[in-house]
Design a protein around this nucleic acid. Structure first.
Length: 638
RNA sequence: GCCUACGUAGCUCAGUCGGUAGAGCACUUCCUUGGUAAGGAAGAGGUCACCGGUUCAAGUCCGGUCGUAGGCUCCA
């Protein structure tokens, strides 16, 4: 038997006997590696460790702590769960069970549903199967044999899957004890490898995601190679729950919902302070960047939405009303209204670009099942603007937007910006030449920006290509916030024009752009990002004055009054509580500055300053303090 | 829209087998006048989401409506 040459990721190579398995190679390198190995990558393809190799190949061991290895482990755990479910619920039919980010799921067709109690039983059975340490074996077979086998087993969904697999492809299945499941693999070599897992939740899910198909029962779970890994992940889930904007919104009394206006947030006085400060901040940027704000109607004759195309594309998401013999639509977007402003006057190329900003309230009838807190609402406003410009101006406008976006994310301390450029979809309106030009100008700006970006081919809007910005929050979750979309269609539909340099009429381009996106959603995302600890400039209550006893009531009142007059959002806590209780209350409501005043301070006209989460900062003159705070607010420090 | 779970005081939650509703925090009043994360006492607060049904009797059982939550094409 001749030898084969195995090349490792560091480009070193060694020869092995033909037919060597990945496991044997791993063992030859070291027992530690062999223990951590879950799969191998041979010439770029993920395979089982037991797979034998009979030709020269690029080779890499996949360990359980790598991303690919974790995926294998997740997928193998999905199988283990399916195994347990089949034992406990013999009538269940298996469907698919992929790994997703940090989790896996498996969909089953069962007569009833899974209860929490069932989940516990399944988990216990999984532990039992893990302890049995069954070998996991790959079985390859022809398409016909596979069809026959799964038909006999009554696994209709698997049969459907096999029927869609290319005739000439080999089909693989994996067995552990007497459980067998159609699967591409690879898998861990025995069930004993799967130890640290937890089933998380159940839900309904349509077969192949199509609501016309059978509703299946899905179970989500997670698994890690170490107990520590699992604990860390479960802790992360706890942390995410603690920071949930709906929970914080209630605790800090920022907003609430009422069943008489579903999915439409009520911002309390406190929440409105934050909301309005977000708007004020964007306004200050608009001043710097040459935007003009407009105010447009809430309700338009349906004729407008027919002309804009919303009637065809968006009518299911619109609130409509009939008044006498006219039908009106509540605006879901500002753009059509803005074209009416643009058309209200004549424009020369010298007027362009026109940057038209609008914080108008929008209403969208989102399906009941997709609503969620502030992230998916039916009533919202955006930091919306439309830029009307010449095709030549697109590049400069985008460059300016980039600058703005970066400023904004810095202010809110969002790091880890990533960008996608979405290009022309198959169903696109407008001249292809214009598309090419628009795409290349977007790409040129991106190239110049030194930002890393990926291209989402064919994912642009039907009216133009777009750039989306994604940020990661404090828990490393990604959120799409800003969007910049080029639009050639609306200017066409509304026959927008300007007089070009050559004296002829020309069609402007519209750029739709929002940086925070919807203010409601941004409020939610940012609330979770900062965990309710608003920076001073955004805080609903910036200062609370805490008198130690009634003896200093007069001083405390005067102090509060003066701070309010100086523009600080200040409260006085003159309840008959002890100072410790007042401090505790202020800390829990996350008020930035606590001013403790007793007889000493009253006499010297000073304050004892305590900062949220930081504790006692010592005694200060009032003017010194207000100077520092004013500067902090002006800088919008985070 | 579909599946599942949930809806009890402002908030967080108990409420057994169907027998007419309870705690903590918050709130109000009183006592205490205090020095950096909870001083004490008393009081007030609920059409148990809504509508209907079963029953002598419903927060509890059944049906419906509304609302909220987790999901619903990350493919064997």
């Amino acid at each position: 038997m001749s030898d084969i040459l195995i090349t490792f990721p560091d480009q070193s190579s060694r020869s092995f006997a033909t037919g060597v398995s990945s496991m044997e190679i791993a063992e030859s390198i070291g027992p530690g590696l062999a223990k951590a190995a879950v799969a191998a990558r041979i010439d770029g393809l993920l395979t089982d460790l037991t797979q034998s190799i009979d030709k020269n190949a690029d080779f890499e061991i996949i360990t359980e702590d790598s991303d690919a290895g974790h995926e294998v482990l997740l997928h193998s755990t999905a199988h283990l769960m399916a195994h347990a479910v089949k034992l406990l619920f013999p009538d269940a039919k298996v469907t698919i069970g992929p790994a997703i980010e940090n989790r896996f799921y498996y969909d089953f067709d069962i007569p009833g549903t899974f209860s929490d109690n069932d989940l516990e039983k399944i988990e216990a059975k999984m532990h039992e199967l893990s302890e049995n340490d069954f070998e996991v074996n790959r079985i390859e077979m022809s398409r016909n044999d596979a069809l026959k086998m799964f038909k006999e087993m009554g696994e209709d969904y698997k049969v459907e899957i096999i029927e869609q697999i290319n005739e000439h492809d080999t089909i693989s299945a994996y067995s552990q004890d007497d459980f067998i499941d159609l699967c591409r693999g690879p898998h861990v070599k025995s069930t004993g490898k799967i130890k640290h897992f937890k089933l998380l939740s159940t839900s309904g899910a349509y077969w192949r995601g199509d609501e016309n198909n059978t509703m299946l029962q899905r179970i989500y779970g997670t698994v890690f190679s170490t107990k520590k890994g699992l604990d860390t992940y479960l802790h992360y889930l706890e942390e995410a729950k603690k920071r949930d904007h709906r929970k914080l919104g209630k605790e800090l009394d920022l907003f609430f919902f009422h069943h008489l206006s579903p999915a439409s947030p009520f911002f309390t006085d406190k929440g409105a302070v934050v909301y309005n400060n977000l708007i004020d901040y964007m306004r200050s940027l608009y001043n710097e960047h040459g935007y003009n704000e407009v105010i447009t109607p809430q309700i338009f004759d349906m004729e407008l939405w027919k002309q804009s195309g919303h009637y065809d594309m968006f009518i299911d998401n619109m609130f409509r009303m009939e008044m006498g013999d006219r039908e009106f639509g509540l605006k879901p977007m500002n753009c059509p209204g803005h074209t009416l402003i643009y058309s209200h006057g004549h424009h020369s190329y010298r007027d362009l670009p026109i940057r038209m900003a609008d914080f108008g309230r929008l209403h969208r009838f989102e399906k009941a099942g997709v609503l969620s807190g502030l992230t998916r609402v039916r009533s919202m406003a955006q930091d919306d603007a439309h830029i009307f410009c010449t095709p030549e101006q697109i590049g400069d406008e985008i460059t300016d937007l980039f600058e703005m976006v970066q400023k904004v994310y810095k202010t809110f301390s969002f790091e880890d910006l990533s960008i996608t450029l979405s290009t022309r979809p198959i169903k696109a309106l407008g001249d292809i030449k214009l598309w090419d030009k628009a795409e290349s100008s977007l790409k040129a700006v991106l190239d110049k920006s030194s930002f890393y970006f990926t291209i989402d081919k064919g994912k642009g809007a039907f009216y133009g290509p777009k750039i989306d910005f994604h940020v990661k929050d404090a828990l490393q979750r990604s959120h799409q916030l800003a969007t910049i979309q080029l639009d050639f269609v609306l200017p066409e539909r509304f026959k927008l024009k300007y007089i070009a340099e050559d004296g002829n009429e020309a069609r402007p381009v519209m750029i739709h752009r929002a940086i925070l996106g919807s203010l409601e959603r941004f409020f939610g995302v940012y609330l979770e990002h900062c965990g309710g600890d608003f920076p001073l400039w955004l805080a609903p209550v910036q200062i609370v004055v805490l008198p130690i006893s009634e003896k200093v009531q007069t001083y405390a009142e005067k102090l509060t009054k003066n701070l309010k007059a100086s523009g600080f959002r200040t409260q006085l806590d003159d309840k008959a509580d002890k100072i410790g209780a007042k401090i505790r209350k202020a800390e829990l409501s996350k008020i930035n500055i606590m001013l403790i005043v007793g007889e000493k301070e009253a006499e010297a006209e000073t304050v004892s300053v305590r900062r949220r989460h930081k504790g006692d900062l010592g005694v200060m003159d009032v003017s010194e303090l207000t100077g520092l705070l004013s500067e902090e607010i002006k800088q919008r420090s985070s």
